[in-house]
Amino acid sequence: MSDRETISMRSGNLGRSVLASPALLVVPTILLLLFTYVWPLLQVLRLSFSAADASVLDGAGFTLKHYIDFFLDPTSLRVIWRSFWISIASTIIALVVAYPYAISIARGGPMMRRLLISIALLPMTTSGVVRAYGVIMVLGREGPLNALLLTLGIVSRPVEFLYGPAALIIGNAYFVLPFVILPLATGIARIDRRLLDAASTLGATRLAMTRTVTLPLLVPAIAAGSVVAFTLNMTAFVTPGLLGGQGYLVITTLLGQQMFALANWITGAVIAVVLLAIVIVTMSVYQAWMDRKAKFYAPRS
């Protein structure tokens, strides 16, 4: 082999190794995030500390006054607490509803598995506005839910589900179900059936097996699904805007009201930063707690 061929082969191998290096492969994603997420987020952060007029986008100066005013306002604290507990409740309900469905996916045959996954993903083929209006039709005074309650004699007159916490919790839980079902189904499918057989042989009931075997092994899947669900619930805008209305504000609708209706850009930036901080802190604490749970249940050598 000639020197020229040797040099050509080495340069080709070097080019392939450079293209295959993990550092280079993530460059396009990093650049996209820098231009579409990090840079706008830094601008919002800068604006939230601006000492300029609230309606000015290109503010200057530095002040903490806007944050102090926001946290001293009882309405702001009430909206933050409302957003937090509704997101938590929606996530818990989604986990409870998704668990038996995920078991059916993991334990079913190939055809049944594909059918159930398609049904779970079907709502994602339409926009959030269409799905929200579907929930409005179900929860309305003349909707099927009120008709069922009246038929069963549970209530004597239609219940006002809309524009309150019930509509938001049901709507949020419905919207995040696919993001909870799939991680749970994957986690259940990976559980070694011999562990369940051993527990059954030792006399454990189905409930005891779920509590002592299945759920501990599903800690990573539960963490993955609940983190995504809580984040989506906390940052959702279309769902609370249509199901909660202007009379039942959460932090995202308050943000939209300040920015789009009142053109109060600085207060809107403050709310956006507070929302981001709440999500990051909550998820960090929750993830640390779940990691400790996962290590506790991990097999010991």
Rank of each mutant, 00 (worst) to 15 (best):
E5P: 00
R10G: 01
G15D: 07
S17I: 02
S17C: 03
V18A: 15
V18R: 11
S21H: 15
P22A: 12
A23F: 11
A23K: 03
V27K: 05
L31W: 06
T36F: 15
Y37M: 11
V38S: 01
Q43W: 08
V44E: 01
S50I: 03
A51R: 12
D53M: 10
D69R: 11
L72M: 11
W81T: 12
I88V: 15
L95Y: 00
P100L: 11
I105H: 07
A106E: 04
R114H: 12
L116Q: 08
T125D: 03
T125A: 14
S127K: 01
G128T: 06
G128D: 09
Y133V: 09
Y133M: 12
V135H: 06
I136N: 09
E142R: 06
L145D: 05
A147R: 10
A147V: 00
L148P: 00
L149W: 00
L149T: 07
V155M: 04
R157V: 04
V159G: 01
Y174C: 09
P178H: 05
P178C: 06
I181T: 06
L182D: 08
A185K: 05
A185T: 00
G187Y: 00
I188H: 00
I188T: 02
D192V: 08
L196V: 08
L196M: 14
G203D: 10
A204S: 14
L207S: 13
T210S: 11
T210I: 05
T210Q: 10
L215R: 04
L217I: 05
L217K: 07
A223I: 00
A229D: 04
V238K: 06
G241W: 07
G244W: 06
G245K: 12
G247H: 02
L249T: 11
V250P: 05
V250M: 14
V250W: 04
L254G: 01
Q257E: 14
Q258A: 13
A261H: 08
I266F: 00
G268C: 08
A277H: 01
T282N: 05
Y286E: 06
Q287R: 14
A288G: 14
M290T: 10
F296S: 13
Y297D: 08
